[in-house]
Design a protein around this nucleic acid. Structure first.
Length: 420
RNA sequence: GUGGGUGUAGCUCAGCUGGUUAGAGCGCCGGAUUGUGGAUCCGGAGGUCGCGGGUUCGAAACCCGUCAUCCACCCCA
């Protein structure tokens, strides 16, 4: 048997209603906040991701699905959505448009990781990018949108954490302080962090090992090295969140894994989601557009993991969103089958949700299928009904049956249904 | 990439320190009801015990390998 690829999942019809619910909520809120959908390719030239995400990040170092095109150019399946969105923004000269460019997107992302609860090789994100505005209100707007979508879906146990990464220059000033502190306590750090001290010291702050946490608890804080402008920017973001009543908690350890972030970074985590507890995350990335060859353009954005949202979505939310019950057409016998086919098509053309199981040859079998398909009404057409020129409409709950003339099926059914 | 758990019927699982024909519940099909579903009763179908080696008189069980899957590390959405 040919099986699906490791870490890549099929979404079966039973599950798609919950996904649609999530997607509809995201779309609805994004629209209200003035974001427009952008659809970009799922693969790009490899250097786009290497340059934007950061060459020494785990994503680029070991998680990308990279392959050669026929002419030898290196392509990769997108591991996230920001890089491609920014590439499109630059390529189509969207900076020249005199209104802010605010995009949202849906789609699959690819990362070659070991699958785990809440982590797949092909997973799906909804993301937004707000390009062109260097105002704290843009950060607030994006964070508010994120929070609104999640709240709308009633996802339980969420917390929004936020931090200020400052400008690149701020981190350049801070990094030596942190490194020299960490070097003093190097023996107490985990093996991973000892490596990180040289490679990416800020990530040590993020380590979950208790000993490392104890050490970093008393480490110099990035917030003490921040410039005045970075501080006041962040203060305005926080007070704006208060104004629009978005609850948050400060987390000075929050260091995002992608290199392009600066100033505001945030993350929404969920209890009861296993080890992979980040539902959504984002931040400001003022330097990225320029890094990729575009005009200097401030930007903020976030992405949320649809699988993780789906895991959190309560079952009751889906039940409430169930569609109306279909109508079953039971045509059997030589002539009844033909008349049933006609009726089925007629009902569908009239706008009914009408179904039938063509394997069923007896009335008993048809009714059983009608029951399984959760049909409220069954239209019974056997050879006898064809002779009489009228079918039987059976209410599956009350068992009440009505004769309906074959020549005026849809009108009769409409009026019967209106009365029930 | 590194650990650990689990692979037995369509699904969820039982199967003792190795013992002869591998079980249950649910589901499925049929009948009781020759044209009336769900409930009940009766009957039936369905299994390379993940795969490949090995140990043994004998392996679903023990050993080795392998694959798949889940969880965790790591990392992140």
């Amino acid at each position: 048997m040919i099986k699906g690829i490791k870490g890549v999942k099929d979404l079966l019809p039973e599950e798609s209603p919950r996904w649609r619910l999530i997607e509809e909520a995201a779309r609805r809120w994004a629209g209200r906040y003035g974001f427009h959908e952008i659809r970009i390719p799922i693969f790009e030239v490899t250097t786009l991701f290497a340059r934007s995400i950061g060459a020494s990040t785990d994503i680029v170092e070991k998680e990308m699905y990279t392959f050669q095109d026929r002419d030898g150019t290196s392509l990769t399946l997108r591991p996230e959505g920001t890089a491609g969105t920014v590439r499109a923004y630059i390529e189509h000269n969207r900076a020249a448009i005199p209104v802010p460019q605010k995009y949202f997107y849906f789609g699959p992302m690819f990362r070659h990781e070991r699958p785990q609860a809440g982590r797949l090789r092909q997973f799906h994100q909804f993301g937004v990018e707000s390009l062109g505005m260097a105002d704290p209100q843009a950060d607030i707007e994006v964070i508010a949108l994120l929070w609104r979508i999640l709240s709308d879906l009633d996802l339980p146990g969420l917390t929004l954490e936020i931090n200020n990464l400052g400008y690149t220059a701020d981190r350049d000033i801070y990094r030596p302080h942190l490194v020299s502190y960490l070097k003093q306590h190097e023996s107490g750090l985990c093996a991973n962090c000892r490596h990180r001290v040289d490679a990416n010291p800020l990530r040590v702050l993020d380590c979950k090992v208790p000993d490392c946490r104890a050490i970093t608890e008393t480490a110099p804080r990035l917030s003490d090295s921040l410039s005045e402008t970075a501080r006041s920017y962040f203060t305005r973001v926080l007070s704006g969140l208060d104004v629009v009543k978005i609850p948050y908690s400060l987390n000075h350890r929050l260091v995002r894994g992608l290199d392009y972030y600066n100033l505001t970074t945030f993350e929404v985590t969920a209890a009861n989601l296993g080890a992979q507890n980040a539902v959504g995350a984002g931040g400001r990335y003022d330097g990225l557009v320029e890094t990729l060859g575009g005009p200097s353009t401030p930007a903020v954005g976030f992405a949320i993991g649809l699988e993780r949202m789906s895991m959190l979505l309560p079952e009751s939310a889906i039940i409430n969103a169930q569609k109306d019950m279909p109508l079953y057409v039971a045509g059997f016998g030589d002539h009844g089958t033909v008349a049933g086919l006609m009726a089925l098509e007629e009902l569908r053309l009239a706008g009914f949700h009408a179904v039938a199981d063509f394997r069923s040859l007896t009335l008993k079998a048809h009714l059983r299928q009608a029951d399984r398909l959760k049909c409220r009404f069954t239209l019974i057409i056997g050879d006898d009904e064809v002779v009489k020129g009228s079918a039987i409409l059976r209410d599956m709950e009350t068992k009440v049956q009505h004769d309906v003339g074959l020549s005026s099926i849809t009108l009769r059914i409409l009026s019967l249904l209106a009365g029930s």
